[in-house]
Every structure is written in structure tokens, then in C-alpha cells.
């Protein structure tokens, strides 16, 4: 009989602690949801330099007293998280690295319209007439090259089809990198696919996300990145890494990085405040310090030497239409599966 008592006690303890754990977990969940229903908290999903978004979020929390929860990831990861949470939306504000993805959300009527205070200050190229996408910053793509491997710096896209770059080229994967997605799409809209076919013949390969391909060039695994983002490479150059970055002289994509408020938000007031903060002088200055192009700039310039970047003019609604087909073609030319 004692035996039974012992086992009974063990199980009682076990069940109690199990219940406790489940209760704690539930309670934790509830506490989190309770937080969300108060106006004093905001959930932001942000793509792009984590240091910058950390800085912005900290500044905003201090400024407004509103608590911010962030999720940092690539554009692709953010969009998938959004999709998974469709029936139970968590995010209030999104910051993406791909304009096409932003326009896609816009055309699906997922976004809230807001006449932001400072949106008149934005560069005309970055304005959205529907007041839904706030292009608070932008980044350009170009050519990142290893200065130890490449003696004469490339100046234009066409230089990369040269024999010198044979098997030394890598392209950020459009599946993970929002800026690469837009670059691959817009380049094909402007010039067709022949360039990518030539790259393939020169042994170019699709790499990983932006940082991965940059790392491959920094460590000398590859000679150059085709369509790497500028701010990341420039930050590495400033750190003293032996790489260079070129804005192609025939023109390149300057990709706005849109912030937006989701229609499903329960904290519209806080979200609007956040957008205002993004367009404030404080943040615009921080953006410049991270070597990104501030949305309110009057000229698009190279952070290294202040020369004007020649940029493509893009109709983003057309780009959104063309996106799927162009990415498919790109993957057919360069993909592995």
C-alpha cells in the first residue's frame, strides 16, 4: 500500500509542476496579448541593418514612452511570418527592404493610409501618392569586389562578363534578399536577360543573403558580388576590409526601403507616431550614418565620395506585375534546381 502512496506522491508532484508549467506558459501568453491591447505597445518587423533598427527603436521608446517589440529578419522571412500569422496578426508596422514587396501588400489592400507629417519632405522619387508606403530610406545596388583579387576596379555591369571574373562571381539570392529581388526584376525590365546568361557563362553563382555573399568576397572565396547592397559594403570598407564598391556608370537600382502600417493594427496611433519618428531629422541623420540613403535627401549620392548615383526610374506597379515572371526566368538561367 505504501508503494502506491509513493507513486501517488510522485505523480501528484509531477502533475502539479506540469500544471504549473502550462499555467505559466499560458499566463505568459496572456500577458503578452494583454500588452498588445494596450495602446502603449507596438510590434515592428524590420528588415535591414539590425544596428540601425535597434537605434531607431531605442530612440523611439525613449521619445514616446511606447514599448516596441521587434522582429529582425530578411524581407522574405518577414513576409512569411506575416503569412503564418494571417489569422492572428501580430505586427503593426513593417519595414521592408523591397519596394516590390511593399507594393504587393499595397495592391492586396493590406495597408493603412496615413498622411504623415514629414512625407512632403521626401525626395520626389520616394513619394507614394496613396500615402501608404513611407520610403524613409533607400539603398543602391552595385558591384562589391575584393581589392586583392581585382586590380582594376570595375566601373560598369558589363565589366563583369570579362574572363578575369571567371568563376569568381556571386549574386545575392533573390529568395532571401529583398534588394536583390528588386534588382533582378528591374534589371530585366530595363535590359532583358542576356546579361544574366552571360554571367552564367562566366561561372556566376547564386549565393545566400546579402551578408553571406559579401562575406564570400571579403574572405576571398569569390572575387565580386553582382548587385550587392551599397551600405553593407561601405560599412565593411570603413572598417578597413580590403574590398571596394562601384556604382555602375550606366545606371543602377536605387531601391526605396518602405515602412508601412498594416490595416490589421490595433495600435494605429502608436504606429503613426512611429512613422512620424522614422521621417524625423534624428532618424534621417542616423540613416546617413549607416551609409544608407536618407528618404528626405535632395540628391542620391555615393556616401564614399558624394558623387551623384545614376539611378533607374522605376514604375513600381509595373515592377510588381513583372516580378514573378522575371524571377522565374532568372532562376531558370542561374538556378540549380
Amino acid at each position: 500500500m505504501k508503494n502506491k502512496k509513493i507513486v501517488l506522491t510522485i505523480s501528484a508532484i509531477a502533475i502539479l509542476s506540469l500544471g504549473g508549467a502550462i499555467y505559466a506558459a499560458n499566463h505568459h501568453g496572456k500577458a503578452a496579448t494583454n500588452d498588445k491591447t494596450s495602446t502603449q505597445s507596438l510590434t515592428v518587423y524590420a528588415a535591414g541593418p539590425k544596428k540601425l533598427s535597434d537605434k531607431i527603436v531605442k530612440g523611439f521608446e525613449k521619445d514616446s514612452g511606447i514599448k516596441v517589440k521587434t522582429f529582425d529578419g530578411t524581407t522574405g522571412k518577414i513576409l512569411s511570418k506575416l503569412k503564418a500569422e494571417e489569422s492572428n496578426p501580430q505586427a503593426d508596422v513593417l519595414i521592408l527592404a523591397s519596394m516590390a514587396a511593399g507594393v504587393d501588400l499595397q495592391s492586396h489592400k493590406k495597408l493603412l493610409t496615413y498622411d504623415a507629417k514629414n512625407s512632403t519632405k521626401l525626395n520626389t522619387q520616394f513619394k507614394d501618392n496613396q500615402h501608404q508606403l513611407f520610403n524613409y530610406s533607400a539603398s543602391a545596388v552595385g558591384i562589391t569586389y575584393n581589392t586583392q583579387e581585382v586590380k582594376t576596379p570595375p566601373t560598369d555591369w558589363s565589366d563583369l562578363t570579362d574572363e578575369r571574373y571567371k568563376n569568381g562571381l556571386t549574386i545575392p539570392d533573390p529568395k532571401t534578399s529583398g534588394s536583390s529581388l528588386d534588382f533582378v526584376n528591374v534589371y530585366q525590365m530595363q535590359h532583358g536577360q542576356s546579361y544574366f546568361k552571360q554571367l552564367k557563362q562566366n561561372g556566376a553563382e547564386i549565393g545566400g543573403a546579402n551578408k553571406e555573399v559579401l562575406d564570400a568576397v571579403v574572405t576571398g572565396q569569390k572575387k565580386a558580388v553582382v548587385g550587392g547592397v551599397d551600405y553593407m559594403s561601405i560599412a565593411a570598407i570603413k572598417k578597413g576590409e580590403k574590398i571596394g564598391f562601384a556604382y555602375p556608370k550606366s545606371g543602377t537600382l536605387v531601391n526605396p526601403r518602405p515602412a508601412m502600417i498594416l490595416k490589421s493594427t490595433k495600435h494605429a496611433t502608436a504606429a503613426k507616431k512611429f512613422i512620424d519618428y522614422l521621417l524625423s531629422d534624428t532618424v534621417q541623420k542616423q540613416i546617413k550614418q549607416s551609409y544608407l540613403i536618407p528618404g528626405t535627401t535632395d540628391k542620391l549620392t555615393n556616401p564614399l565620395n558624394d558623387q551623384v548615383i545614376k539611378s533607374y526610374t522605376v514604375n513600381w506597379h509595373d515592377a510588381n506585375q513583372a516580378l514573378e515572371a522575371n524571377i522565374k526566368k532568372f532562376n531558370q538561367v542561374l538556378g540549380h534546381d
Binding site: 506558459a25 499560458n26 505568459h28 501568453g29 503578452a32 503564418a84 489569422s87 501580430q90
Partner: peptide, 15 residues
Amino acid sequence: FSQLFAFTKLYGTIS
């Protein structure tokens, strides 16, 4: 948890 048991609101939490 995101489709069948979405009402528990557990999805997206650490639980």
C-alpha cells in the same frame, strides 16, 4: 496553433 487552435492565441508566443 496558427490554423486549428488559433483561438488559443498561443501562436507567436514562446509557449
